[in-house]
Amino acid sequence: MSISRRKFLGWMGAAGLAGSLGAEPAHGASTREFTGHPDSYGVLHDITRCVGCRSCEEACNTVNELPKPTKPYTDESVLDKKRKFTATEYTIVNKSVQNGSPIFLKTQCNHCLEPACASVCFVNAFQKLPNGAVVYDASVCVGCRYCMVACPFEVPTYEYEDPYTPEVVKCTLCAPRLEKGLLPGCVESCPTESLIFGKRDDLLKIARARIEKYPERYVDHIYGEHEMGGTSWLYLSGVPFKDIGMREDLGNTPAPALTSGALHVIPMVVALWPVFLAGMYGMAKRRDKVAAEEKTKAIAIAVEQTENKAAETLARAMDKAKKEKENILKRVERAKEKAAKSKEDS
């Protein structure tokens, strides 16, 4: 089931990139509200029942064929220090002392309904399978480690020591075992039924029933019901979750919704920025053209004015010269007359 689903998704991506807009008959719920895969599985971890035996850690180590730790699983001194996930430890049991009594918390990948790791992976290496598991495909991973930045539960780890083929490592909800109809290793090994595997909807009902039946035993909160849009792992606790190191300030927004706003701006920039910029370019060009035209016009006017002035000066000069010539002629005439008269007189 899960493999065919992944093939389908891969095909969908390929079809999308081949340009078949609208050809894909995929349709979301009409209200665009997504409630996760129906009938997906999950695990309810009743923290009040955990005795810190670390059988789950050992089972996880065995079924995933991980290297054996230096200290045996029966060594309780391991619990004295707070531990984090490593590339060889997918699940960790941590002890914290509340009001004098120890409380044990098993942690692993919570298998979000809307995984942050899947949302941020730029090769789409993470998939939320319909059975509930969030699985990772190492064959496409580039190793950017954005999934680790994004995960609010600080789950994915990296094989920093491997120089050539490092991979991201995290709990798989034993997806390969689920396909064979087996329980996750940790659940199978739990001697106190602190871990219950089942359909998430059923687990929520069980958890609510327990809270109702034993209100003095449980905090009235199912961790994972709404956190980060909900997770496939659910937790019940007798003390406030934040007191045992579980963050209650993560919010209920599913991870993809955190980036959807920024993603939706991208096509707007692509669509409208060139329009604006080409407009600016056109206006600048037009301004230059007008400026150039005005310059040419101004020059033409100036030239014309100069020419007119020159012509006027020339005309005036010509006029003056003409008058002067006439005057001279008149004077000559008069002189001639005078000379003639004086000749007559003499």
């Binding site: 949302s119 941020v120 090769v123 789409n124 290496a125 496409v140 580039v142 954005y146 920024a262 993603l263």
Partner: peptide
């Protein structure tokens, strides 16, 4: 790989 092999288009990266 992100462009040729498999496209994680929901990622800002």
């Amino acid at each position: 790989y992100p462009f040729v092999v498999q496209q994680g288009t929901t990622s800002l990266l």
